[in-house]
Simulated scan of single mutants.
Amino acid sequence: MRPAVEVADIFRRYGEAWRQAHDGHLGRVERRVMSAIELCRTAALGGHVEGCRTCRTVRVAYNSCRNRHCPKCQGAAARDWLEARAGDLLPVPYFHVVFTLPEEIAAIAFQNKKRVYGILFRAAAETLRIIAADPRHLGAGIGLIAVLHSWGQTLNYHPHLHCIVPGGGPSPDGSRWVACRPNFFLPVRVLSRLFRRLFLEALRAAFEVGQLQFFGEIEELADPPAFARMLTSVSRRDWVVYAKPPFGGPGQVLAYLSRYTHRVAIANSRLISMEDDRVTFRWRDYRRGRRPRRMTLDAGEFIRRFLLHTLPDGVHRIRHYGFLANGQRAARLTTCRALLAAGTPEAADRVRPATSPEPVSRPCPCCGRPMVTLAVWYHGQAPPTGPFWNDSS
């Protein structure tokens, strides 16, 4: 069922005026995101007419924009990604570790997304792998999936990294599987300190070779002494790194990943209303026990906050490291399963979801039988008109 309000509705009603008001400050990526969401699943992008041979139902289906920031397009992308990842799960506990940047660094990240996001991914992955390899903590080579989010519940800019990590890994000599302690992965205080050091070292190196830019309220950081003072200040504070309890099993890992990997800044399901040039949406106050709340913003402010979270071209939101890295993942997972003595069919059943009959990809809304394509049109063409059934036979 279509939500009462969608991000696309807000962009269609208020987007053009907002673009004109901010014409000199709106980048190419933001313009492309707005245009894609506005046109998503409309006749402008083309589509097809499909029908049911059994009950003769006919319906029109419009093409999606497939933009990674579009709330309507990420469901199918998430399903495809999860189907590909289901076979990668191991019969071990999985942990969720979150790395968050302090406010001063977030301001730099917003003006240098591509550079700072890369530093964030590398620093978090190296932190987990270095501490896990230390025999005082785990003594194993681990793998992980890292997912970048840049938003909080109220759409403010809040860059942080979600890492999903199997609870163990091969020993340094590859002879055995080293499991973490029950319900405990790695000490978060140790993780926090190493993450802070690795991140600030990389950020300082990027500054020294002129890879960072500073504008507006943080323009003074372009001055080396001011930048050094900022680094000193943030290096004296604890950085937020926390680990959640382990998942109950691989099935819960998949369910969790389906919610996080392809999430956008706000889902259409959270939108409540769009009236009097204002947008109201639901959010949860995590500082007060996840209490549900409502927030109302001017439509222009809602658009501004949504666009804070666009990603530069070439920046991947999901990345894999260790034995889950893309290069040799299949071979390394085979080794891990062998070390876990999970190479038998019985063990494989524990890590792969049970197969079920393939659902009908495009079921008829009336009888449930498969729909077939009757006509197609493309971007710039006029939609075809009927009749679509030839009943002369």
Rank of each mutant, 00 (worst) to 15 (best):
residue 259 R to T: 13
residue 263 R to V: 14
residue 260 Y to D: 07
residue 250 P to R: 01
residue 225 P to F: 04
residue 281 F to L: 10
residue 257 L to N: 05
residue 282 R to A: 11
residue 231 L to D: 02
residue 244 K to Q: 15
residue 267 A to D: 15
residue 212 L to C: 08
residue 264 V to K: 03
residue 265 A to G: 12
residue 249 G to S: 07
residue 250 P to C: 08
residue 243 A to K: 08
residue 270 R to P: 05
residue 220 E to T: 12
residue 240 V to P: 04
residue 221 L to Y: 08
residue 216 G to Y: 00
residue 259 R to H: 09
residue 272 I to C: 03
residue 263 R to S: 15
residue 282 R to K: 12
residue 286 Y to D: 12
residue 220 E to N: 10
residue 215 F to S: 14
residue 249 G to M: 09
residue 218 I to N: 07
residue 268 N to W: 11
residue 285 D to N: 11
residue 215 F to N: 12
residue 212 L to K: 06
residue 246 P to E: 04
residue 237 R to V: 14
residue 267 A to Y: 00
residue 268 N to F: 09
residue 241 V to S: 07
residue 276 D to S: 12
residue 242 Y to V: 10
residue 220 E to A: 14
residue 231 L to S: 02
residue 222 A to S: 13
residue 224 P to Y: 02
residue 243 A to G: 15
residue 267 A to H: 13
residue 262 H to F: 01
residue 214 F to W: 04
residue 227 F to R: 02
residue 239 W to F: 09
residue 253 V to N: 04
residue 228 A to V: 06
residue 258 S to Q: 10
residue 217 E to W: 00
residue 265 A to M: 05
residue 232 T to E: 15
residue 249 G to T: 09
residue 250 P to G: 06
residue 256 Y to A: 15
residue 280 T to Q: 07
residue 239 W to D: 08
residue 284 R to G: 00
residue 253 V to S: 05
residue 213 Q to N: 06
residue 252 Q to A: 14
residue 243 A to I: 08
residue 213 Q to W: 06
residue 258 S to M: 08
residue 253 V to F: 01
residue 260 Y to P: 07
residue 217 E to P: 07
residue 264 V to D: 01
residue 230 M to S: 03
residue 240 V to L: 13
residue 256 Y to E: 10
residue 227 F to H: 02
residue 256 Y to Q: 13
residue 225 P to Y: 00
residue 226 A to L: 12
residue 223 D to V: 09
residue 277 D to G: 13
residue 249 G to N: 04
residue 284 R to D: 06
residue 269 S to H: 15
residue 267 A to L: 01
residue 242 Y to C: 11
residue 245 P to I: 04
residue 232 T to Q: 15
residue 267 A to P: 08
residue 281 F to W: 01
residue 259 R to F: 01
residue 272 I to S: 02
residue 226 A to R: 14
residue 248 G to L: 11
residue 281 F to S: 09
residue 284 R to P: 00
